[in-house]
Amino acid sequence: MNIPDILQSIAGRYVTQSFLHAFIAVIITDGALRAWKIEDPAVKQRFRILNVLFPIFSFPFYQLINPDRGSLLFRTVALFDSGRWMGMEVFGVVSLHFFFLFLLAGTALVFFFQELVPILRHLRESDTDVAEAYDPVGKDLVEEALMSLPMDRPRTVIIDDGDMVLFSSTGRKAAVFVSSGLLKALNREQVRAALAHEIAHITRSRRPILLATFLLRMIMFFNPMVLVEFRRAVRNEEKICDDIAISVTGRPDALAETLKKFYSRPGRSPDAAKELLSTDVPLEEYSHDLQLESRITRLEKARLQSRGGGWLPFTIVLLAMSGVCYFVV
């Protein structure tokens, strides 16, 4: 069996169409977010999750309602027939399906090394005990901040490290990890904001919808559009947790100041992230700083709109993408 025949098989059509459907879903969703000026990260995340889940189910659903969707007759009325492009030859030498498969294989590798392995490692580490550093000053500060937060108090670990470290682990032994270096750099309000943000992560990680989305997202391990959309959903998660932290502390400025400590080059202004584009820095560092800048700007402008809702645009988008993708084979 050669590659064109594989792509014409049920599995091949599923892979091809899920890629195309995800691509179209992203275009339609981005158009909807612009049309309705949706800024609320919770609503945005709902759209991103839709883009992750839609291509998983679209092909089987369409085949169920019309088993003849792959026929020539249907392809004559289709908006887009992938078979035409897959058979194309670049300079009469290499067929486009090679590039397509190369893209899928690359995405699968990125998924494995950048998502699956770190998550498995995170799950394993979250179940192991971590030795806490003895830092009486930092411990008092953390205790004081936690006492003033109207949230469930998770285990908090102070790491003896001069760098700016703040993260949380989920799972059975959920905990917030904060470095002594960060605690020295933050005042009481900023520690509160930082802890509230991490506690929000732990609380939200217990929601089954996010776990279910990730498990389903693994089916699309080859799909580059799903990879991008899942990461955008994760970035929305940061903003959602920012909003939760602010709703608890009432101090967006404190959280913004805390975030500034996490720039890859300490002491930089938020605007300097743009300058990074023209300088020789790793892409990951640039991306990290750009995301921080986006969050800080949002906090400083107090554009916090976690009000939920937006179900009518969501329904319209779902119907529109279902209608369009039905004719994409």
Partner: peptide
Amino acid sequence: RYVYFALTIVAVVILLKTLNWLPLVLQ
């Protein structure tokens, strides 16, 4: 806002139709 979204869908359909037609011309 609804009109803007409707135009987005129209643009997507036109784009798909064009992309579907291109291989016939190119090869």
